[in-house]
Amino acid sequence: MMRFVTVCLLVLPCLASVAWTAPALAQADRCPKLVAKNPFLQSLETRALPAAYLQPRQVGLTYIGHSTFLIETTGGVTVATDYNDYVRPDIVPRVATMNRAHMTHYSLHPDPGIEHVLKGWRDDRDPVRYDMEVGDLWIGNLQTNIRDWEGGTIRNGNSIFIFRAADLCIAHLGHLHHLLTKQDLGALGRIDIVLAPVDGSYTLDVDGMVEVLKALESPVVIPMHYFNQGTLNRFLERFSSSQYEIRREEFPTLVFSRETLPIKPTVIVLPGR
C-alpha cells in the first residue's frame, strides 16, 4: 500500500538572500500572502510518489539523503537538488541543481538524460542567475559566498535555489556559510518550505542557522546535511523551546499544498534513503 503525508502551515512572506544585486521578484510573481485553512497535519500511508499520484495544486518532496531532495510537480517536472555522484534519486530528473562546496554537492558527469543542469556558481566567480520556467515549475537562485579549505572566501560559490509550483515557494539553502542580510531576505520574498543544512560546522554554525531560519519565518523547515543523529538532535534542541513544533516522519516523502501547510511553524525530520 502506498503511503504519503500531507502537510499544513501559516503562510508568511517570501524573504531572501543576495551576493549579487538582483532586484526582488516582482510582486505579481511572488507567492500571495495567505493563511492556510487546516490547523493540523494529516498523515496517510505512502512511499515515494510519482507525479501521477499528485492531485492538482500539490507538490511532492522526497528526501533522498545528504542535501539531495526530489521535487515533483503535478505537471510531471522533477528536480534533484545538489545532484552528485554519491546520493541520487532512483529516477533521472528533468532538472538537476548543484553547488560548488565539494563533490557531494555536484557532479562532473551528470546523467545525459537530464534536460537542465543548473550549476549554482561560475568558475570565474561572476554571478550566475536563473529565472526560468520548466513546465509548471519556476526556478530562480540567490547566490551566497562560501569558505575555501584554507579559510578564504569564494565569492558566489553557493546558490540558494528557489522553486515555485502550486503557489508554494521552496528554498534549498545549499551549502550556506554565512548569515543572510536584509537585502537577501527581501530578494527571496516569502518562503513556505526551507530545506536547511544543519551540520553546524561545514556549513553555518547552529546558532547562525537558527537565526537565518527564524528570519525566513517559513512555515516548514526540513533539516538536511547533518551526518548523524547527534548532530541533528543538537539542532533540534535549539528549537525545542522556541515557537516551532518538531515532527519526525517515518517515510521520506511529503505531499504539500497551500491549504495544508501547518498553522504552527514546524520542523519536519525526514528519513534519508
Rank of each mutant, 00 (worst) to 15 (best):
G152Q: 10
P32Q: 08
I64T: 09
N233S: 03
N156T: 08
L261P: 04
V269Y: 00
R125A: 02
A187H: 08
L34S: 14
E150W: 13
V11P: 11
Y63M: 04
G135P: 10
L168D: 03
R164L: 04
R122V: 01
L176H: 11
H172T: 07
G174A: 02
A26T: 13
Q58F: 08
K119M: 06
T46Y: 11
T260I: 00
L12Q: 13
F239Y: 03
P89Q: 04
G135C: 07
L168R: 09
H102W: 14
E211M: 06
L188W: 02
V134D: 01
P110M: 07
R273Y: 09
G65T: 10
V7W: 05
D192W: 01
T62N: 07
G230W: 06
L185Y: 10
K37T: 14
V18M: 12
S159V: 07
P219L: 01
G174T: 06
P219S: 15
G152R: 14
P50M: 08
G65K: 04
P265W: 00
Q183L: 10
A52R: 15
K182V: 07
I71L: 15
L232C: 01
P252V: 00
A28E: 15
L137Y: 03
I146D: 01
K37P: 09
P89A: 02
V59N: 04
A16D: 10
I222N: 02
T181H: 06
W20N: 07
H102K: 12
A26D: 14
F251D: 09
V269C: 08
F4I: 09
K119R: 15
A19T: 13
T81D: 02
P110N: 05
L176T: 15
R147E: 04
V134A: 00
G208I: 03
P23Y: 08
L232Q: 00
A16H: 11
D126E: 15
I162R: 13
